[in-house]
Computed example of a mutant assay.
Amino acid sequence: MVFPQHGEACPAPIALSIGDPSGIGPDIALSAWIMREKHSLPPFFILGDPSLLIARARQLGLDIPLSVCQPAQVLQRFSRYMPVVPLKNRLSDKPGVPQAANAAGIVEAIERAVQYVLAGQACALTTCPISKKPLYEAGFNFPGHTEFLAHLASRHLGRIVQPVMMLAGPQLRAVPVTIHIPLHQVPQALTTEMIIETVRITEHDLRNRFGIGNPRIAVSGLNPHAGEGGALGHEDDAVIRPAVELLQAEGMNIRGPLPADTMFHRQALTTYDAAICMYHDQALIPAKALAFDETVNVTLGLPFIRTSPDHGTAFDIAGRGIARADSLIAALKLAAMLAGRHRSNFNN
């Protein structure tokens, strides 16, 4: 698998939400703009607090000319200035110290970014990391970033949207069926219908956004050795296999359940375009082990493109000048590629 590069022109810039400003979101956003020419980055603008970004740049020893503007002005300014679309809610700049007082601005940045994408003023959304705890303390009622984005998409479309998390890297695209639940709850939560829906959304977006004509999909088992014929658990044969067989009958290029311990070695990675995994760590451990700094979190199933760095807020290194922007750079490039292909498919 070759990691996609920015190749197709986008009609609008990418909206970059600032994330939790007490984390490394501001650091990596500033670094990405500095490296825009080196990495041929698509134009993007930050939804954030200009005064915070100026203060963070000063703390990091960076000389960056900011331009407070609106999305329509970004393409003309991006080469010389870092475009910032200001928030109504101010953000407090205390690196490493998450604050519930910043919740309103964090949420506003996400909501407005989605609005700009849906209105065609941005071609895609890339999000810097958020921390759930300070948001919960301020009354945020969603399990996380992805669920909130699905809520905004559902509100826009007037129907329920089912988001699917994909970790996309240079060698592996991995999709967990269940995500942020305790491991002991996975067997009870996992259903044949859930697997079918996850695979269908994945297959659809592999075709229509990644441009893969006949996606090859590998489905992991849940138990060691994919259950060993029932000796090590019944879920593989009772829950997972019926989903695979139904999708095979529909003509999908899919196989499984496969033992997870043999799905991610070098030769195995060449035999499929996406791995469907049964729980969070089964997907994220190989994705991060193979390419921690280059893997991108992509949300499938939304009516817009959303990518994110595949790491957290890293409060412990915020404002210290050591945060790496590699994953954000990869997320911006992938967003541009997917947005260009999405636009081509829409126009056709």
Rank of each mutant, 00 (worst) to 15 (best):
M1Q: 08
M1E: 05
F3L: 12
F3Y: 14
A9D: 08
C10R: 12
P11E: 13
A12W: 06
I14R: 09
A15H: 05
L16H: 06
S17E: 02
I24D: 04
G25W: 07
I34R: 13
K38W: 08
L41N: 10
P43Q: 11
L47V: 07
D49L: 06
P50R: 04
L52C: 08
L53S: 06
L53K: 06
A57S: 13
L62C: 07
I64S: 15
P65N: 10
P71F: 03
V74N: 07
R77I: 11
P86V: 01
K88C: 15
D93A: 11
K94P: 09
G96P: 08
P98I: 02
N102W: 06
N102D: 09
A104M: 13
I106S: 04
E108H: 08
I110G: 03
R112W: 12
A113M: 03
V114T: 07
V114H: 02
Q115L: 13
A122R: 11
T126H: 09
T127H: 05
T127I: 06
T127A: 13
C128S: 09
C128E: 01
L135V: 01
L135I: 04
Y136E: 10
F142K: 04
G144A: 06
H145K: 01
H145M: 05
E147R: 10
A150W: 02
L152W: 03
A153T: 00
I160M: 15
L167Y: 12
G169T: 02
G169I: 01
P176F: 12
T178F: 01
I181N: 07
H184I: 08
Q188I: 07
A189Q: 12
T191R: 10
T192C: 13
T192H: 06
T192K: 07
V199W: 10
V199I: 14
R200E: 11
T202G: 12
N208V: 04
R209T: 01
F210L: 11
G213Y: 02
G213V: 09
V219G: 05
V219Q: 08
E228W: 15
D236G: 11
V239L: 12
A243W: 03
E250N: 00
M252V: 08
I254S: 00
R255V: 11
L258F: 00
A260S: 14
H265M: 09
T270M: 14
A274K: 11
A275G: 07
A275E: 02
M278I: 07
M278K: 08
Y279A: 08
Y279F: 15
Y279M: 09
Q282N: 07
A283G: 13
A283R: 09
A287H: 07
A289Y: 10
A291T: 02
F292H: 02
T295R: 01
V296G: 04
L300K: 02
P303K: 04
P303R: 06
A314R: 03
F315L: 11
G319I: 05
R320A: 05
G321M: 03
R324P: 03
A325Y: 07
A331R: 08
L334S: 06
A335D: 05
L338D: 03
H342W: 10
H342A: 14
S344A: 15
F346P: 04
F346H: 14
